[in-house]
Simulated scan of single mutants.
Amino acid sequence: MAPKNAQDTSERWHEAPRDPEPSDLGYEMDDWEVIRARKDDRGHLMFLPEEEDMLREEAFIVADSRSVCDVMDRI
């Protein structure tokens, strides 16, 4: 028999919607600035948070431009 908390987790997993809202998963939408390392579509992109406090906490992303898509375009 599985421990009670493992069983609760399993039940919650099976009851979760197949396509949850990001807020249901604990995510919040933020505005980030995108900076291209090169002017063509190749190279890297740097994502910087608009809130300076987050930047001070080392919140940034560097990604290859081919690895990035706008998820809003996929809805």
Rank of each mutant, 00 (worst) to 15 (best):
D31H: 07
P17I: 01
I75D: 07
E15V: 00
P3Y: 04
G26S: 11
N5L: 09
I61G: 05
E50P: 01
L55R: 14
M54W: 13
D31I: 10
E50R: 15
D73F: 00
P3A: 08
R66D: 13
R74C: 01
D30R: 09
E11T: 05
E28G: 10
E57R: 15
E52M: 12
D30I: 05
D73P: 00
R18C: 03
E11N: 08
R56Q: 12
R18A: 07
R42L: 13
E57N: 15
W32D: 00
C69F: 14
E15L: 11
P49G: 12
P3C: 04
S10A: 14
G26L: 06
M46A: 14
E21C: 03
V62C: 04
M54H: 15
E28A: 13
P22G: 03
M72F: 08
I75S: 03
R74M: 08
P20Y: 08
E50Q: 14
K39W: 12
D41F: 06
E57V: 02
N5P: 00
F60M: 13
A16K: 03
L45D: 04
Q7L: 12
P17K: 10
D41E: 14
E57K: 15
M1N: 05
P3G: 01
K4Y: 04
S67Q: 12
R18K: 07
W32T: 01
V71M: 10
A6H: 06
R18Q: 05
D73G: 02
R56D: 11
L45R: 05
P3L: 06
R42T: 15
I75E: 09
M72L: 09
V34G: 02
M54C: 12
E15G: 03
S65M: 04
L25G: 05
D19S: 08
R12S: 06
R12N: 06
D40W: 02
L55W: 11
K39L: 12
E58N: 08
C69L: 13
D40P: 00
E28H: 10
D30A: 09
I35A: 04
E51I: 08
C69K: 13
M72G: 04
W13L: 14
E52H: 13
F60P: 01
M29I: 01
L45W: 10
D70K: 10
A63L: 06
R66N: 12
V62A: 07
H44C: 07
P17M: 01
D19M: 03
D19E: 08
A37H: 11
D40Y: 05
M72R: 15
E15Y: 02
R42K: 15
R36H: 08
M29H: 02
V71W: 12
V34H: 00
S67A: 14
D24C: 01
E52D: 14
K4R: 10
S65D: 06
N5F: 11
P49T: 13
A63Q: 04
L48D: 03
R56V: 04
V34A: 08
L48P: 00
M54F: 15
P17A: 07
E21M: 09
A37T: 12
H44N: 14
D53Y: 09
R66M: 11
D19K: 03
A37Y: 03
S67K: 12
V71R: 03
M1G: 11
Y27C: 05
A6P: 00
P20M: 09
S23K: 14
P22Q: 05
A63T: 02
R36Q: 11
D40C: 06
V62K: 12
I75N: 02
V68G: 04
D24R: 05
D64T: 09
